[in-house]
Amino acid sequence: MLVDIIAGARPNFMKIAPIIAAIKKAALEGKDIKYRLIHTGQHYDKKMSGDFFEQLGIPEPDINLEAGGGTQAEQTAAIMIRYEKVLMEHRPDLVLVVGDVTSTMACSISAKKLNNIKVAHIEAGIRSGDWTMPEEINRMVTDAITDYFFTTSETANINLKKAGIDDSRIFFVGNTMIDTLLTQMPNFKEPPVWNELGLKPKEYIVMTLHRPANVDEEDGLRKLMSAIVDSSRGLPLIFPVHPRTAKMLKSVGIEAPNLHMIDPLGYLEFNYLVQHAKAVVTDSGGITEETTVMNVPCMTLRNNTERPETCTIGTNELLGTDPVAIPPAFDILFNNEWKKGAIPDLWDGKTSGRIVDVLLRLF
Results as ranks from 00 to 15, higher is better:
313 I>A: 09
183 T>F: 15
144 A>S: 15
34 K>P: 10
60 E>W: 11
283 D>Y: 01
205 I>V: 12
129 G>P: 07
217 E>L: 13
196 E>M: 13
36 R>Y: 08
362 L>F: 06
90 H>R: 15
325 A>M: 14
109 I>P: 09
168 S>H: 11
35 Y>P: 10
169 R>A: 13
228 I>M: 11
202 K>M: 01
350 K>P: 10
177 M>A: 12
212 P>K: 13
55 Q>G: 07
268 L>V: 07
291 T>G: 01
318 L>T: 02
54 E>M: 14
263 D>G: 07
245 T>S: 09
208 T>M: 10
239 F>Y: 14
192 P>K: 02
267 Y>H: 04
307 R>D: 06
80 M>Q: 00
52 F>A: 11
246 A>V: 02
186 P>A: 07
209 L>E: 11
38 I>G: 05
247 K>V: 15
224 L>H: 06
46 K>V: 15
177 M>E: 08
277 A>S: 15
321 T>Y: 08
131 W>L: 15
270 F>C: 02
239 F>W: 07
105 M>L: 14
105 M>W: 07
255 E>V: 13
74 E>V: 10
228 I>C: 09
339 K>M: 05
287 I>Y: 10
93 D>R: 03
17 A>N: 08
239 F>A: 09
120 A>Y: 02
146 T>I: 10
114 L>D: 03
234 G>W: 04
147 D>T: 04
55 Q>C: 01
357 D>I: 13
44 Y>P: 04
317 E>T: 13
244 R>I: 08
70 G>Q: 04
139 R>W: 00
23 I>M: 12
32 D>W: 10
334 F>S: 05
198 G>R: 11
172 F>D: 11
167 D>H: 06
21 A>C: 12
153 S>Y: 04
109 I>A: 04
275 Q>H: 14
27 A>S: 15
156 A>H: 01
32 D>R: 15
196 E>G: 04
32 D>C: 12
3 V>T: 12
260 H>E: 06
346 L>N: 13
58 I>L: 08
171 F>L: 01
219 D>R: 15
341 G>W: 05
127 R>K: 09
360 L>P: 09
99 G>S: 09
118 K>G: 06
281 V>S: 07
11 P>S: 03
279 A>L: 03
331 D>V: 12
333 L>H: 00
43 H>F: 06
245 T>R: 04
123 E>T: 02
123 E>P: 00
55 Q>E: 15
233 R>G: 07
225 M>S: 01
291 T>I: 05
190 E>N: 06
267 Y>R: 03
18 P>K: 03
70 G>R: 05
80 M>L: 14
5 I>M: 14
161 K>L: 13
182 L>E: 08
7 A>Q: 04
318 L>M: 06
326 I>V: 13
206 V>F: 08
27 A>H: 07
289 E>L: 09
39 H>Q: 02
340 K>P: 04
333 L>Q: 01
14 M>F: 09
302 R>N: 08
64 N>D: 13
48 M>P: 12
361 R>K: 15
187 N>P: 01
159 N>E: 10
353 G>E: 06
282 T>D: 02
